[in-house]
Write a protein that binds this DNA or RNA. Structure first.
Length: 368
DNA sequence: ATGTCC
C-alpha cells in the first residue's frame, strides 16, 4: 500500500493548522486506509485530526473513532413560545444537572436495547470538554418551504445537546488498546466483531444519553419537547462494502444535520445534498472547529478577561460554566468562524441551509 | 474526551 487519497473540503487550505494537516497525512499512510477526507472544521487532536473521515475496505481502526464513541448532537423543539422563555428564571432553575440522574435508568436503558446498569451513574449527564446543552431560538429561516414542510416552528424555544458516551466509550477504547497494541483489526475477525458490538452499544448509549439530558433540562423548566434530529459524529459504520470512520464528522446520509458554532455564534440546521456526498465520504463538518488549543485559549483569554465577562457572549447569550479553566478553553474566541465553515460546505455542494439558530443559554457545568 | 493525576 502506498497510502490513501486525501481530499480536503475547504476554500482556503492555507489557513488550516499545519499540525492538523500533518495528522491527517499520517492517518492516510496507515496500512488499510484507502480514503481520507478533511472537513472545513478540521483541527488538531490528540494524534488524530478532528473533523475528518477515513474509509477502509476491510479494517476497523478504533483509534480513528476515539474514546468518545457515539458523541453527537441532538436537537429538540420545545412547546414553549420563545417569547415566554425567561433567562433569569431558567438560569436559576437549571441546577443539579451534573448530579447523577434520579430517573429510571434501567427502564431507559432497556428501552434503548441496552443492558441494565450499563453506565447508569453517568446516564443523563453532559460531561466536560466541548459538551453542552443550549437553549436557542430560530434566528433566520433560510429555506422557508423546507422548514414549513418539516413542520418546524420558528417561534418555539429549541434545545441542542452535545454529549457522548462518557466513561463507556472510553472503557471500550481502553480495552481495545490493552488487547495487543495493534492499530486495526479485520472487521470480521473476533477482535473486530467484539469492538464493533461494543461500539454499537456505546453509540446507542450516547443517543439515549442526549435524550435523557434533554428530558432533564426540559423537566427543570416544565417544558415538553420533541426530538427533531440526533446525529452522531464519532463512529465507524459499514459503508460501500468497507468501514467508514468518522472523527468529529457529521454523516451526510442520515437526514437533517445541525452544525453548531461556538457558544457565541449561530448554529445551522442544514440538509445534506446526498448525491454530492461521495467525494466527501458522506461526511460534513461537526461544528466550527477549534482555532486555538485549550492551553492557548486559556493562556490568551485568562489574561484579558475575567470569567464573569465570558458568561455573556457577543450575541447576547448567557453561559453557565462554573469551571474556571473550561470557561476560557471553550470561549468563542477559541473557535473558527462557523459562517466560513458553512460557506465551504455550501460551495462544495454538500449542504443546503434550512435555518440558523441563536444561542440563548449555554449550560456547561455548575461544578468546578 | 475521561466515575479525570497524587
Amino acid at each position: 500500500m502506498t497510502g490513501a487519497s486525501i481530499r480536503i473540503i475547504s476554500s482556503d487550505i492555507g489557513r488550516m493548522d499545519p499540525l492538523a494537516l500533518d495528522q491527517l497525512a499520517q492517518t492516510a499512510r496507515l496500512e488499510g486506509i484507502d480514503r481520507v477526507v478533511g472537513l472545513p472544521d478540521l483541527h488538531a487532536g490528540r494524534g488524530i485530526a478532528v473533523g475528518a473521515a477515513f474509509w477502509s475496505p476491510d479494517m476497523v481502526f478504533p483509534h480513528l473513532v476515539g474514546s468518545d464513541i457515539g458523541c453527537g448532537m441532538g436537537l429538540w423543539e420545545t412547546d414553549l413560545p420563545v417569547r415566554k422563555f425567561k433567562l433569569d428564571a431558567a438560569e436559576r432553575k437549571l441546577r443539579g444537572l451534573d448530579e447523577p440522574w434520579d430517573g429510571d435508568a434501567d427502564a431507559a436503558l432497556s428501552g434503548a436495547g441496552l443492558a441494565p446498569g450499563l453506565g447508569d451513574a453517568a446516564l443523563g449527564t453532559i460531561g466536560g470538554g466541548n459538551h453542552f446543552a443550549e437553549f436557542q431560538r430560530i434566528e433566520q429561516v433560510i429555506d422557508g418551504d423546507r422548514f414549513d414542510a418539516l413542520g418546524f416552528r420558528a417561534d418555539a424555544l429549541w434545545l441542542m445537546v452535545h454529549s457522548g458516551s462518557r466513561g463507556l466509550g472510553q472503557a471500550i477504547l481502553d480495552a481495545w488498546t490493552r488487547r495487543d497494541g495493534s492499530a486495526a483489526a479485520e472487521a470480521a475477525s473476533e477482535a473486530g466483531t467484539t469492538y464493533l458490538a461494543a461500539h454499537d452499544h456505546a453509540v446507542a448509549w450516547a443517543v439515549l444519553n442526549r435524550d435523557v439530558i434533554a428530558r432533564r433540562f426540559c423537566e427543570k423548566l416544565g417544558l415538553a419537547a420533541e426530538r427533531k434530529l440526533d446525529i452522531c459524529h464519532n463512529s465507524v459504520t459499514a459503508h460501500e462494502g468497507g468501514w467508514l470512520h468518522r472523527k468529529g464528522a457529521a454523516p451526510a446520509d442520515k437526514g437533517l444535520v445541525v452544525i453548531p458554532g461556538s457558544r457565541g455564534d449561530f448554529s445551522y440546521l442544514v440538509e445534506p445534498i446526498v448525491d454530492r456526498g461521495a467525494e466527501a465520504l458522506y461526511s460534513l463538518a461537526h461544528g466550527a472547529g477549534r482555532k486555538w488549543s485549550r492551553n492557548d485559549a486559556h493562556g490568551r483569554l485568562s489574561k484579558r478577561f475575567r470569567p464573569a465577562e465570558l458568561e455573556r457572549t457577543a450575541l447576547g447569550g448567557r453561559v453557565i460554566c462554573e469551571d474556571r479553566r473550561l470557561i476560557f478553553e471553550e470561549a468563542p474566541q477559541a473557535y473558527k468562524d462557523i459562517g466560513l465553515v458553512i460557506r465551504d460546505l455550501e460551495e462544495a455542494g454538500l449542504i443546503r441551509g434550512i435555518a440558523s439558530l441563536r444561542p440563548l443559554l449555554s449550560y456547561k457545568t455548575r461544578r468546578t
